[in-house]
Design a protein around this nucleic acid. Structure first.
Lengths: 197, 197
DNA sequence: AATAACCTTGACTGATTGGTCAGGTCTGCT
DNA sequence: AGCAGACCTGACCAATCAGTCAAGGTTATT
C-alpha cells in the first residue's frame, strides 16, 4: 500500500532524476545532484529507491511504453500517407513535449544501449518489423511510393528526435528563433514529396 | 621539438581517448580505461596531457575542422541540387568512416554543448548562415524547390549522423544487415524528391 | 662511454561518489 | 493522548577517481 507522501516523493525523485540523467547521462549524474533538484536529502532518495541503478531503471521502463505508443498507433487499415504523416507528427510532438525523455533515450543508445538492448531487440524490433511489413504492403499495392520501410522509420526517428537531442546546437545557430519553428512545415513537405506515388 | 616517441604515444593516447570518450561521454570516461586501451600507464598519459580535460579538448579541437569541411565545400557556383546532394553524400561517408567522432560530438551537444558553445555559436553558426543564404538564393532563383535552408541543413545532419549515433539501436533492429545498407539509396531518393522544383 | 634530456612507473593523496546505519521525527489511527 | 509504523537525517564507510612525485630506466648525441 502506498501513502500520499510516498506518491509525492517518488514523483519528485523521478522528475529530478529525469532532469539530471537526461542532461548528464547515467555515469555523469550524481545522487547529490538529483537530491538537490528534488529538494530531498541523499539518504532519503535511497529510502525510496534501492540504488542509482534502480532509479534509472524506473525511468527507462516508464519511457519505453510512452516511446512505442506513436508507432503502435499506426493503423494498417488507414490511409497510407495519412498514417505515416500522422506518425511523424506525433513523434515531433513528443520531441516538443518530452525533450528530456528523448535525451535520456539518446544518451542510452549512444553509449551502446547497455540497459535497453533487451527491450530494443525484443518489443521494439517486433513492433518495427510488424509496421515495416504493413508499409511494404502499401508500397507493393501502389498506394505509396516504393520506399524502404526501415529507412523510412529511421528517418522519422532521426528527424524528429534531432530537435530534442541537438536542441543546444540548434539554439546556438538559430539564436532567438524557437528551434521547432518551421520544423513541422518542413517535415510535412519532405515526407509528402517522398511518399506521394 | 617533438620526438618520434612523442608522436607515437600522443597518437595512441588520442585514439584510445576517442574510443572511450565517444562511448562513455566525458564524465563517464576514466583515465584508467583510456590508459588500458592505449596500453600505457595512467601517469604516462598525464606526462603527455596535463589533464583529462586537456585530452578531451585536443579531440574536440581536432574534430571541428573535420566536421565543418563537408559544408565548407558546398560551392555557391555549382549546380544547386548536385551541391546539396554532394554535401549529403559526404556527411553520410563521414558517419561511415568516422562514427566515433560523430558520437563524441553527439555526446557533447546532448549534454548542452558545454565545451563547444563558443565554436558552435562562432565558426559553425557563421558557416551555416553563409550557406543558408546561398541556398535561399537558389530557391529564390527557382533553381531549387522553395525550402527553409536551416531545416534543410538540420535534416541532413539528423539523417546522416543518426546512422553513427544510433548504430546500436539500428543493429539490434536490423540484425545481420549492415546498418548503412540501403541508406544511401534512400537518402538519395528523399532529397531528390524534396529539392527538385 | 659519458651525459643530459627524455621517458616511465609504483606508490601515494585528497576529493568525490554510491551506499549504510543508528537513531530521531512525523503522521495517521485508535 | 498515545502508539505503531512510516519517514527522515547526520555521520560515516569503502571504493573510485584525477592527479602528484620521487626515483629509476631509456635514448640520442657527442
Amino acid at each position: 500500500m502506498t501513502t500520499r507522501i510516498q506518491r509525492r516523493n517518488r514523483r519528485k525523485i523521478l522528475d529530478a532524476a529525469l532532469d539530471v540523467f537526461s542532461a548528464q547521462g547515467f555515469r555523469g549524474a550524481t545522487l547529490d545532484q538529483i537530491a538537490a533538484v528534488a529538494g530531498l536529502s541523499k539518504p532519503n532518495l535511497l529510502y525510496y529507491f534501492d540504488s542509482k541503478e534502480t532509479m534509472h531503471r524506473a525511468l527507462l521502463d516508464n519511457l519505453l511504453d510512452v516511446w512505442l505508443a506513436p508507432l503502435h498507433a499506426l493503423d494498417p487499415q488507414g490511409d497510407p500517407t495519412a498514417e505515416i504523416m500522422g506518425y511523424m507528427r506525433r513523434k515531433l510532438e513528443m520531441s516538443r513535449d518530452y525533450p528530456r525523455e528523448s535525451r535520456l533515450f539518446a544518451n542510452e543508445v549512444l553509449q551502446g544501449a547497455p540497459r535497453l538492448s533487451d527491450a530494443i531487440a525484443g518489443d521494439l524490433k517486433a513492433l518495427v518489423d510488424d509496421k515495416a511489413a504493413v508499409i511494404r504492403g502499401w508500397s507493393a499495392a501502389g498506394r505509396l511510393a516504393p520506399v524502404d520501410p526501415y529507412h523510412l522509420i529511421f528517418s522519422i526517428w532521426a528527424l524528429t528526435q534531432h530537435y530534442a537531442d541537438f536542441d543546444a546546437q540548434i539554439r546556438l545557430i538559430r539564436g532567438e528563433t524557437d528551434p521547432l519553428d518551421g520544423a513541422d512545415a518542413f517535415l510535412e513537405t519532405l515526407f509528402t514529396r517522398l511518399l506521394t506515388p
